[in-house]
């Protein structure tokens, strides 16, 4: 529900990073998005496209990698992906586990144009 706020933070991070790397344009931004986060990829992409306008990231493509929920079973220690947080453990059928993956909301890499060759928006 707070995709607009998240998109703004991403744009800020892109502008900041591009500035520190010679001021070129940002072409691609890659984001890890865990299954437990409350962020919808489609709304985020939309809010991101709007948020980039008028910045050095205008036209930037947001590549989102959805990271599935990974739990470590409280009962038997089995670790693996689960469809939902209260799905039974595939090994021992117990419910419940420590969240090992799924809370990520993390920019991983950016693709920048060199400042010298920066031209119009792709």
């Amino acid at each position: 529900m707070h995709e607009v706020a998240v998109a703004q933070r991403i744009v800020e991070a892109l502008v900041d990073t591009a500035g520190r790397h010679g001021g070129g344009r940002v072409r691609i931004a890659r984001l890890d998005l865990g299954a437990l986060t409350c962020v919808d990829p489609e709304s985020l992409t939309f809010a991101f496209d709007v948020g980039c306008r008028g910045t050095c990231a205008e036209g930037c493509r947001l590549e989102i990698t959805r990271l599935p929920l990974v739990l470590r079973c409280f009962a038997c220690g089995d670790e693996g992906p689960r469809d939902g947080p209260v799905d039974p453990c595939p090994r021992c059928k117990a419910i419940g586990g420590e969240v090992r993956q799924g809370r990520e909301l993390r920019l991983t890499t950016l693709e920048l144009d060199e400042a010298s060759q920066a031209e119009g928006v792709a």
Partner: peptide
């Protein structure tokens, strides 16, 4: 293009 690794929590 240059790739920049940032690994930054949003």
């Amino acid at each position: 293009m240059t790739e920049v690794a940032i690994q930054r929590d949003v």
